[in-house]
Simulated assay, not measured.
Amino acid sequence: MPDNEFGYTPWGRDWVRLAEPLRQTRPEPLLPRARSIARNDGVRLVIEARTVRAHLHRGGQASVAHVEVAPLPHAAVTTIARVIADPTVVTDETHRALRDAGYSPAPTLASTDCSCSARTQRCVHLLAVLYTIARRVDENPRLALELQGYFDAPAPGADATEPRWIRINTLDPGRFFDRAR
């Protein structure tokens, strides 16, 4: 039995570090409550590509949290493809080999959002979601690469940067609102 119920593999530990960063100088009072919510299955996750939508229920309160993971850069995809011979089998040794190759497989969050009234970047619900993801990644380390879009990466030479927003002045209203006849 592992000492820590969240992040007992290097892949899961990368997710726990998002909730418990090493640069933090004082204790975070929300962490014990967030771990309790995750431990008692208070988080229901829906994973769609690089977006995680979570429904949290505690007592009479319900919240919806969204976590979007940044896509892997093309250089990282080629490094991972070079180091990992079989991406269906992701182990602790694979994590170590990626680190030795000079790539840190730790995820980067592109955006987070929660419907709770706290209105902070690190509410208890988002922390509970990170712990729940860490537990899922501990069970299936391949999920760490899936959430970063490794298996959805475009082929070499393709344009890997898809614009997140479209400038409104680039739209043609005549064509945009034209109904099919």
Score class of each variant (00 low, 15 high):
29 P>M: 00
147 L>C: 11
179 R>I: 07
29 P>C: 02
47 I>T: 10
89 V>N: 09
115 S>C: 07
15 W>T: 08
80 I>Y: 00
57 H>R: 15
147 L>P: 08
16 V>S: 00
78 T>H: 12
131 Y>C: 07
120 T>P: 03
15 W>H: 14
163 P>V: 13
33 R>F: 03
52 V>W: 02
150 Y>R: 01
104 S>D: 15
111 S>V: 00
98 L>F: 11
24 Q>M: 15
74 H>W: 04
42 G>H: 05
61 Q>L: 09
124 V>I: 15
142 R>C: 12
86 D>L: 00
93 E>G: 10
141 P>S: 06
121 Q>C: 09
3 D>V: 04
53 R>Q: 00
170 T>R: 15
17 R>M: 08
37 I>G: 09
110 A>P: 01
108 T>E: 13
90 V>L: 11
140 N>E: 14
126 L>E: 00
60 G>A: 11
118 A>W: 05
123 C>E: 12
91 T>K: 11
95 H>D: 03
65 A>D: 05
164 R>D: 06
45 L>Q: 11
164 R>P: 01
159 D>G: 07
99 R>T: 06
23 R>E: 14
123 C>W: 11
77 V>K: 13
50 R>L: 11
64 V>I: 14
57 H>M: 10
43 V>K: 06
13 R>W: 02
20 E>A: 12
51 T>L: 09
36 S>D: 15
82 R>L: 12
42 G>E: 02
99 R>I: 04
21 P>N: 08
